[in-house]
Amino acid sequence: KLLSSIEQACDICRLKKLKCSKEKPKCAKCLKNNWECRYSPKTKRSPLTRAHLTEVESRLERLE
């Protein structure tokens, strides 16, 4: 599967780190437990900047 097509777990399953069936409108866990089942939009991760990478590398060197 391509990364862009990976389905996201519902908010509660993601928060509780449960295996989500990803069914809509309610996944199996939410249906069974009568929880409100919501699927928040995916958040875009910002790409690493060179400055951040350099900072992490220098912190790693100090720890070694």
Rank of each mutant, 00 (worst) to 15 (best):
K1A: 15
K1I: 06
K1R: 11
L2N: 14
L2D: 15
L3D: 15
L3K: 03
S4P: 11
S4Y: 12
S5T: 08
S5A: 10
I6V: 09
I6R: 04
I6H: 10
E7P: 08
E7W: 12
Q8N: 09
Q8S: 11
A9S: 03
A9M: 02
A9L: 02
C10D: 01
C10M: 07
D11A: 01
D11N: 03
D11C: 00
I12E: 12
R14M: 00
K16V: 00
K16G: 01
K16E: 02
K17L: 05
K17V: 04
L18Y: 09
L18F: 00
K19L: 06
S21V: 03
S21R: 03
K22G: 01
K22L: 05
E23L: 09
K24Y: 15
P25H: 01
K26I: 14
K26S: 13
K26D: 09
C27Q: 04
C27W: 02
C27F: 07
C27G: 02
A28V: 14
C30W: 08
C30Q: 01
L31V: 12
K32P: 01
N33L: 12
N33C: 12
N33W: 02
N33I: 01
N34Y: 14
N34R: 12
W35K: 12
W35Q: 13
E36G: 12
E36I: 09
E36C: 14
C37G: 06
C37H: 02
R38N: 15
R38T: 15
Y39C: 02
S40N: 03
P41K: 06
P41W: 06
P41Q: 05
P41I: 03
K42V: 05
T43M: 12
T43K: 04
K44I: 15
K44H: 10
K44W: 07
R45T: 05
R45G: 00
S46N: 03
S46W: 02
S46T: 11
P47Q: 01
P47D: 11
L48Q: 04
T49D: 01
T49A: 01
A51I: 12
H52G: 01
L53V: 14
L53Y: 00
L53S: 01
T54P: 08
T54Q: 09
T54S: 11
E55N: 11
E55K: 09
E55M: 13
E55S: 11
V56M: 06
E57L: 00
E57T: 04
S58H: 14
R59W: 01
R59V: 01
R59S: 06
L60P: 04
L60Q: 03
R62I: 15
R62L: 14
L63C: 08
E64Y: 13
E64W: 06
E64H: 10
